[in-house]
């Protein structure tokens, strides 16, 4: 048995009286895609925010790659190899696709107190950025403004930006949110190609995506993990069906 890459133990978070994360245990093995599903308001986004370092946890531990990261800031976690994508598309709309990815690379290329040289003419940023865009199939859109890309392409760009930080693990918050069936299909294929190269924590609403990609699935209800297992086990779990799947389909 190898060690899990991400290990979450007894994680808690509440807002006022509302418990969003309730003694949650969770792990992701190297190379694994572990999906988290759950009804609206189950605390999925809170969970991602806690792992990415946007929200401070009330208690519990988060271990990543052998280090306790509970006290680390979001940028520090990014530098340790945790990359996240956002539920709401948050590419930099006024920058070109290329500049978006270059910015990610810049974040991991030493400090940015460099005031003189033109960033967009900097080959050490532009060339690797172009390569990543080529890899994700957005190569010919490099000089388009991110805000002018189609929705599905913006979501892909978002993941390209995460990849550009050379992460060990991707935290993907609903990568197919707001997509039509066709776009979802493309995204699914795209993520499937990344499978094996990166560990992933996948938050997802779309069951087809979850069941076709995930190695393991955890069901979150009111901040508690009520079941964890292979997609097949989850499909057949009676408690999950009544709590969640039954309502959804």
């Amino acid at each position: 048995m190898s060690e899990p890459l991400l290990k979450v133990e007894q994680l808690c978070k509440s807002f006022g009286g509302v418990v969003a994360t309730d003694n949650l245990d969770f792990d992701v093995m190297p190379g694994e895609i572990h999906a988290v599903i759950g009804p609206n308001g189950a605390g999925k986004t809170t969970f991602v925010a806690q792992i990415a370092g946007m929200l401070k946890s009330d208690s519990g531990s988060i271990t990543f790659d052998g280090n306790d990261i509970a006290g680390k800031t979001a940028p520090e976690r990014s530098h340790m190899g945790l990359a996240r994508s956002f539920q709401i598309t948050s590419v930099f709309k006024n920058f070109t696709a290329l500049e978006n990815v270059a910015l990610s690379i810049q974040a991991h290329a030493g400090h940015s107190f460099k005031f003189w040289k033109r960033a967009s003419g900097d080959k050490t940023l532009i060339e690797p950025a172009q390569k990543i865009l080529d890899d994700v199939g957005l190569g010919d859109k490099a000089l388009n403004l991110a805000g002018n890309l189609a929705h599905g392409q913006q979501r892909q760009l978002e993941i390209a930006m995460a990849l550009a930080t050379s992460p060990k693990m991707l935290l993907l918050d609903e990568p197919t949110a707001g997509m039509g069936t066709e776009e979802s299909e493309i995204m699914r294929k795209f993520l499937n190609d990344l499978k094996g190269d990166y560990s992933m924590l996948l938050i997802e609403h779309d069951m087809d995506t979850v069941f076709s990609l995930a190695d393991r699935v955890t069901v979150l209800v009111y901040g508690r993990g009520i079941a964890t297992g292979t997609p097949k086990e989850i499909r057949n779990n009676a408690e999950v069906r009544s709590a969640y799947l039954g309502e959804d389909e």
């Binding site: 946007m54 979001a74 990359a83 948050s90 709309k93 910015l103 974040a107 040289k117 033109r118 930080t165």
Partner: peptide, 27 residues
Amino acid sequence: KIINSRFGMVVRGSHSNDARMQAIGFP
């Protein structure tokens, strides 16, 4: 010059989305 430098890119990036900038690794 500063606006178009690496430093300027960080400042402009945090204009549109500061949380995003932090997530890709900028303090």
